[in-house]
Write a protein that binds this DNA or RNA. Structure first.
Lengths: 226, 226
DNA sequence: CCTGACCTTTACGCGGTCTTGACGGTCCCG
DNA sequence: CGGGACCGTCAAGACCGCGTAAAGGTCAGG
């Protein structure tokens, strides 16, 4: 679960954010001033929501202090519209800057974006691997593995498979497939599809005559079945 | 140098951004519509500035398309104040959302924040020595060893090899390789690649006719295999 | 001014890939 | 039962990308 540290001296805002964030599945820590915010950084929050204008410390000092302790994204809340404030906050190490009053949905979306970026990097080489019973598809490395060895696909074969896999089990019409792979001007050459489906099945299916993963939905199109 | 891809259909804005960003030390690529933006993603910009409301594609589709090709931060520019638009864009994969008219200083600060976040983590633990079966590559010392003795590479040869090795086994498109080695303006001279691949293979591969480490993936590019 | 290293360009053969046509099978519907 | 629409399969020729060699071109250093 994602832990958010909320730093604000206004109890009303803290309470509202605690309710909202908890309802959206976050765990919430709170701090009412800069000193306790820096102390709370030791609890390794995954994200910090920081109101500038705390009673004890200058906002920028809080940011730099937090940056010393954690790399978690910092989203600044502030009532000040002054552009120079934003610049200083962002350059001090903040990741985003939201001015009050703010739309709740937008605020939450910015939190999601911030946490997505910070966790996405951490896991580094995250491979979107798609598994079927008899083969696996690596969409980023553009490789296929089957029975331990790699399978070679021609560019067009790969393009077709990629579109089918990315659709995630949805049925794709011949028109749509042709437009995606061959470009929007070749939407009538449905024969291509059949030829390449045969080749793909021959290379990937255990029994090409009775496909289990590259299924044809008669009259509607084709579908990828993991 | 940090490379920024600016996507906007308004030539005035493109021109203004190009001047401003260049003055601040960025390298600038531009695209006037969604299709060319997706193509330009192969040039692996370090950051994307994207205007929603392009003539050819829906803005959200451009975001998801870019996300498929790159993890570079995307900063959305838009004239629309509607909060729902922001939420959709952020959830589609954008990293920040700036509404026009915007303060230039704030905009630049947000760019700095975005690029800081994405590059900050990348420089983690990197192995400067890469081993292949028949040779080793020292990325920091810029030296190659094979059979005990050093191998001399010309600057261009080295640039190409370095890009391939740094990709760590991923397939790199000709566009991308050319952009990395020769700069983003030479992305069509695919013949260079073949010539230099031959030279590299002759210098590094045990059997240049059947390369084991500098593998070509027909139709999509080249790959380094350790 | 010459030389050598390096980059760029031209030319060409080969093999893989794409396209196209032909044919058989299946299913549905008149 | 027959015809048509749709799908699967195979094979052959056209075409394009790739690998390779080798000839200009450029530039710095001696």
């Amino acid at each position: 679960m994602t832990t958010v540290l909320v730093v604000d001296d206004d109890p009303q805002i803290v309470r509202a954010l605690r309710i909202t964030l908890t309802a959206h599945g976050y765990r919430v820590l709170t701090a009412a001033d800069g000193a306790s915010a820096l102390r709370a950084a030791d609890d390794h929050p995954d994200m910090v929501v920081l109101d500038l204008g705390l009673p004890d410390l200058d906002g920028l000092d809080v940011i730099t202090g937090l940056r010393r302790a954690t790399t978690a994204p910092i989203v600044v809340l502030s009532g000040r519209l002054d552009s120079a404030d934003k610049v200083r906050a962002l350059d001090a190490g903040a990741d985003d800057y939201v001015t009050k009053p703010f739309g709740l949905e937008e605020f939450l979306a910015r939190l999601r974006a911030a946490v997505r970026r910070s966790t996405g990097r951490r896991s580094g080489a995250e491979e979107p691997l798609v598994r079927a019973a008899s083969f696996t598809v690596d969409l980023t490395a553009k490789k296929i593995h089957r029975d331990g060895t790699g399978v070679h696909l021609t560019p067009t074969e790969w393009g077709l498979l990629e579109v089918l896999v990315r659709a995630g089990g949805e049925v794709l019409s011949p028109r749509r497939l042709l437009a995606e792979v061959w470009g929007p001007n070749h939407t009538s050459a449905t024969h291509y599809l059949r030829v390449y489906l045969v080749q793909l099945r021959r290379k990937l299916e255990p029994d090409p005559a009775h496909p289990r993963h590259l299924v044809t939905e008669p009259g509607r199109g084709y579908r990828f079945q993991p």
